[in-house]
Amino acid sequence: MAVDSAKLVEIIKAISEKITENKEYLTQLDSAIGDADHGINMSKGFRAVVEKISGMEGKDCGTILKTVGMTLISTVGGASGPLYGTAFMKAGQAVTGKSHLDFNDLITLMEAALEGIKYRGKAEKGEKTIVDALEPAVEALKRHREEGVEVALREAVEEAKKGMEYTKDIIAKKGRASYLGERSLGHQDPGATSCYIMLETMAAQLLDGKKS
């Protein structure tokens, strides 16, 4: 695997498209246990991101990722803006100056993203947040590092999905849903869902790339 800046921009555009496709769905999930805006927030943010990074194909990957992060921070607001924004910022910082990303870079930046979200949101796994999808994915990437990018990505997406689905069975301890207490049970977390969508889209893009 070798992702250049152009490919990175393409991946981010694909993520933006998928998020926008799922705008209603994410919002509906948020209406059950939050304030019915997660899809609106995320698609607004990624619309701005796509505008900002179009024409950045010449820049290094770190700069592109940091731009994504800054844009999310300055356009989304709410909880998801600072969280995903920090994740992309930290990911970008982890790969500063690189014009290409290999599989190890991918793991490095994913670890940084997870760390960024956990630093910003102070959530642990099991609290019904983005972390429940992201952390198992990052762990899978690391666990399957030796088996190569294809296996590792498939495992990561699989684990993210399981983590996302698991959020139905737990009580929210962080974010707006935590105010619901027991009533948050049975509902899938919107942030974990958007995280899974992003991971899955990224994987599809990378695996596509691999085949070509």
Binding site: D37, K44, I73, S74, T75, G77, G78, A79
Partner: peptide
């Protein structure tokens, strides 16, 4: 003033 029901951004 953030968007409706959405915290304003840091900037």
């Amino acid at each position: 003033a953030g968007a409706v029901f959405t915290s304003p951004t840091p900037d």
